[in-house]
Amino acid sequence: MRTVIGLLLTLISLATYAGEGPFARKMKKLRVMTYNIHHCNPPSAGAKIEVEAIARVITNEKPDFVALQEVDVNTERSGKGLHQAKELARLTGMHYFFSKAIDHQGGDYGVAVLSRFPIIDSTRLILPIDPVIGGETRTIAAITVEVAKGKKVIFASTHLDLKEPNRLSQSELIINLFKDSTLPVILAGDFNAQPDSKVIGLLDQNFTRSCLDCKPTIPVKEPNRVIDFIMFKPGSTFKSLSTRVIDEQYASDHLPVVAELGITY
Rank of each mutant, 00 (worst) to 15 (best):
T3N: 14
G6Y: 12
L8K: 03
S13Q: 10
S13V: 11
L14S: 09
L14H: 00
Y17D: 05
Y17A: 14
G21I: 06
G21M: 04
P22E: 10
F23V: 10
K26P: 03
R31M: 09
V32R: 07
V32L: 09
T34M: 06
Y35W: 05
I37C: 03
H39A: 08
P42W: 01
P42G: 01
S44G: 00
A45T: 00
G46E: 00
G46Q: 00
A53H: 02
I54L: 05
R56L: 03
V57C: 00
I58K: 00
T59S: 13
N60F: 01
E61V: 00
P63G: 08
F65A: 10
F65D: 06
E70A: 05
E76Y: 08
G79F: 02
G81T: 04
A89N: 07
F98S: 07
A101R: 01
H104A: 14
H104T: 01
A112P: 12
D121Q: 15
R124P: 06
I129Y: 13
P131Q: 13
G134A: 08
I143P: 12
T144G: 09
E146L: 14
A148N: 12
G150L: 09
K152H: 13
L160D: 09
D161I: 03
R167V: 09
S171H: 06
N176W: 11
F178G: 05
S181P: 04
S181I: 05
P184T: 04
L187R: 02
L187H: 02
Q205D: 11
F207N: 04
C214V: 05
E222C: 03
E222Y: 07
F232I: 12
K239V: 13
L241N: 08
D247I: 12
V258N: 04
V258P: 01
V258C: 05
T264K: 14
